[in-house]
Computed example of a mutant assay.
Amino acid sequence: MDNILITGAASGIGAATARLFHARGWQVGLLDVNQAELASLAEELGGAWHAPLDVTDAAAVQQALADFCGQHGGQLRLLFNCAGILRFGHFEDIESAEHARILNINVLGLLQMTHAAFRYLKATPGAQVINMGSASGLYGTPHMVSYSASKFAVRGLTEALELEWRRHGIRVGDLMPPFVRTPMVDGQRFEPPTLRRLGVTLKAEDIAAAVWQQAQGAAVHRPVSWPFKLMYWSGQVSPAWLNRLVMGWLSRE
């Protein structure tokens, strides 16, 4: 039976993905720093395997992977790196420690999880890594500077590792949605002009469906929602100055 290990699983996109894959017969592993919500979701899913985890803790990452994969013959079919944080606001108004925290969780945490998972992925036919990217990893987005930087890093890591791990038969890809209606977005105190102009039309369940599609396919980048798909593909062929002009208009205060 296929298995999936999800970071950031306690709420939002991670929880929606866990529910979808569990409903479709996969063995689900849940990881998150929020122990109460994590335990509640695990109970909802019939006692699914779960463990509290800070993805920036390298030793804890190693242990969590060993514990989950040890119950599945040392194999891991799919790692979904969903853990991440963001902070909307003017760059100078956000403490440098918060910028660093965003990069540590969104980039270093993802890198540590993926690195530690290699031995289990390599041992599994059809193994795959899906990283939680973002539309803001396509072009730098004002008022979410460090988050955007982190998603550029995720995009680069995904592209490079997809090429490098082909020799091991491990597929690597990412999802690139625009804004998604999740507790993380709803809890922000600052509304970026880009969000106000584009709106929030996606739900966590829409991204979970994209994870399912990605698990069946081999796309390196999977843009989510038709409007952003059009922006993504036009951005591949339009000149850089035009992309900058559009982003400048969307983010104008």
Results as ranks from 00 to 15, higher is better:
residue 2 D to L: 05
residue 3 N to L: 10
residue 5 L to T: 07
residue 10 A to H: 02
residue 11 S to K: 13
residue 14 G to L: 10
residue 18 A to V: 01
residue 22 H to V: 13
residue 24 R to K: 15
residue 24 R to G: 12
residue 28 V to D: 10
residue 30 L to W: 02
residue 31 L to C: 15
residue 32 D to I: 12
residue 32 D to V: 12
residue 33 V to P: 01
residue 33 V to D: 14
residue 33 V to I: 15
residue 35 Q to Y: 01
residue 37 E to K: 14
residue 39 A to D: 12
residue 41 L to T: 05
residue 42 A to N: 06
residue 44 E to T: 09
residue 52 P to V: 04
residue 53 L to S: 01
residue 54 D to Y: 07
residue 54 D to W: 04
residue 55 V to M: 03
residue 55 V to Y: 01
residue 57 D to V: 08
residue 57 D to S: 09
residue 61 V to N: 02
residue 61 V to W: 02
residue 64 A to R: 00
residue 64 A to F: 00
residue 65 L to D: 03
residue 65 L to H: 05
residue 65 L to N: 05
residue 66 A to L: 02
residue 70 G to A: 10
residue 71 Q to Y: 01
residue 75 Q to T: 04
residue 79 L to P: 00
residue 82 C to V: 05
residue 86 L to F: 05
residue 88 F to S: 10
residue 89 G to H: 03
residue 90 H to D: 04
residue 93 D to C: 00
residue 94 I to K: 08
residue 98 E to N: 05
residue 99 H to N: 08
residue 100 A to Q: 14
residue 105 I to L: 02
residue 105 I to P: 01
residue 111 L to A: 11
residue 112 Q to M: 13
residue 112 Q to F: 12
residue 114 T to E: 04
residue 116 A to W: 06
residue 118 F to A: 15
residue 121 L to Y: 08
residue 122 K to R: 09
residue 122 K to Y: 09
residue 124 T to P: 07
residue 124 T to K: 14
residue 125 P to G: 13
residue 125 P to I: 13
residue 126 G to N: 15
residue 126 G to A: 15
residue 127 A to K: 09
residue 129 V to A: 04
residue 132 M to Q: 12
residue 134 S to K: 10
residue 135 A to I: 04
residue 143 H to Y: 15
residue 144 M to N: 06
residue 146 S to Q: 02
residue 153 A to N: 06
residue 157 L to Q: 08
residue 158 T to Q: 10
residue 164 E to K: 06
residue 165 W to L: 13
residue 166 R to N: 04
residue 167 R to G: 15
residue 167 R to P: 03
residue 168 H to D: 15
residue 168 H to L: 12
residue 168 H to Q: 14
residue 170 I to N: 10
residue 170 I to C: 10
residue 173 G to D: 02
residue 173 G to L: 11
residue 174 D to C: 13
residue 174 D to N: 12
residue 177 P to G: 13
residue 180 V to W: 01
residue 181 R to P: 01
residue 186 D to I: 02
residue 192 P to D: 11
residue 195 L to K: 14
residue 195 L to M: 14
residue 196 R to K: 12
residue 199 G to D: 11
residue 201 T to A: 13
residue 206 D to S: 04
residue 209 A to Q: 13
residue 210 A to T: 02
residue 210 A to S: 07
residue 210 A to R: 03
residue 210 A to L: 02
residue 218 A to W: 11
residue 219 A to E: 08
residue 222 R to L: 10
residue 223 P to W: 07
residue 227 P to Q: 12
residue 227 P to V: 14
residue 229 K to E: 15
residue 231 M to Q: 12
residue 232 Y to E: 10
residue 233 W to Q: 14
residue 233 W to K: 14
residue 234 S to N: 10
residue 239 P to K: 09
residue 241 W to S: 15
residue 242 L to F: 07
residue 244 R to A: 11
residue 246 V to Y: 11
residue 246 V to Q: 14
residue 247 M to L: 09
residue 248 G to Y: 07
residue 248 G to V: 05
residue 248 G to I: 12
residue 250 L to C: 08
residue 252 R to T: 07
residue 253 E to Y: 00
